[in-house]
């Protein structure tokens, strides 16, 4: 854990940078969406480098750097290492940076073949065969999950760092928030294959509130790597999708292989359903 902000140079505002790798910019937009708080953000932080918002581009070092996007091109690795050198806090924002993002679907495919199939000049495309999370390459001080991130969570993390408090975000399931909001469960009442029980809270249970099943945007509940016997119990939920809700194995795979599909609990669940149907039926 990086040193807390109370040791930021006396009398100076912490310098913030926002960097981007392979991503859609949606998480950076979530920062700009903090309309009510942007002014106070400007008074407590020195926004030194944020090309999406301002032409002001101060060189590092920075106190806090938000990193959006996954490692997808050969030169990304070196650029990321440089960023790590120049910042005290490196905080990843969003599913691309924390999980490899939707573009990590290529990790299951033959990337060269895709290039040839899609682009008229595949030789112009300079990308790695995988899309990987930032934490596979450098030490990350804190991860803010979500696709896109939730601005209240981001604000909370900033508030904590500025106040000299170690940031913490809850890791429990979406269901807890869904019930706090007094929503009707779409899995039980409509038979929708909701990922809420195995997905980390943070979004405010938006989809069930719109009568839709959770897509798992905030990644596996309780962290990117499941300990033995600990949540998320993806297998029990997948079995329920298959046996009670009637999803066929390829549909189960698609539920888990989404925006956060490359993180271990979701990845292993989708792999388990790739073998023959007979195997799953034995459970």
């Amino acid at each position: 854990m990086a040193r807390p902000a109370r040791s930021f140079r006396q009398g100076t505002k912490p310098r913030l940078a926002v960097m981007k790798f392979a991503s859609c910019d949606g998480c950076q937009l979530s920062i700009l969406n903090m309309e009510d708080e942007l002014l106070s953000l400007g008074t407590v932080l020195d926004i030194a480098y944020f090309p999406e918002a301002s032409s002001r581009r101060l060189a590092g070092p920075y106190d806090i750097t938000f990193v959006e996007g996954s490692i997808s091109m050969p030169e990304d690795v070196q650029r990321l290492a440089d960023i790590r050198q120049r910042t005290t806090w490196l905080i990843t924002i969003g599913a691309c940076a924390t999980a490899g993002g939707i573009q990590a679907l290529r990790n299951w495919a033959d990337a060269e073949e895709w290039k040839r199939a899609i682009y008229p000049h595949p030789d112009y495309i300079r990308s790695l065969s995988t899309s990987t999370p930032i934490s596979e390459h450098v030490k990350v001080d804190f991860e803010v999950w979500g696709c896109p991130i939730d601005k209240r969570q981001l604000l909370r993390v900033l508030t904590d760092i500025i106040g000299g408090v170690r940031p913490r975000l809850p890791h429990h399931s979406v269901c807890l928030e869904c019930k706090r909001q007094r929503q009707v469960c779409v899995l039980v009442a409509k038979g929708e294959p909701c990922l809420g029980p195995v997905t980390q809270t943070g979004c405010g249970a938006i989809c069930p509130g719109m009568a839709r099943a959770c897509y798992g945007c905030f990644g596996p509940a309780e962290g990117p790597v499941a300990a033995p016997g600990a949540p998320p119990n993806t297998h029990a939920l997948a079995q329920q999708f298959h046996r009670s809700l009637g999803l066929i194995p390829v549909e189960v795979i698609r539920r888990f292989r989404g925006i956060n599909g490359y993180l271990q609990p979701f990845r292993e669940e989708s792999h388990a359903w790739e073998s023959t149907e007979d195997t799953h039926n034995q459970g």
Partner: peptide, 14 residues
């Protein structure tokens, strides 16, 4: 039961 339970919290909420 631990193999079946999701630790989702729904039982305690309702």
């Amino acid at each position: 039961v631990a193999r079946r339970c999701l630790a989702c919290t729904n039982c305690t909420m309702v």
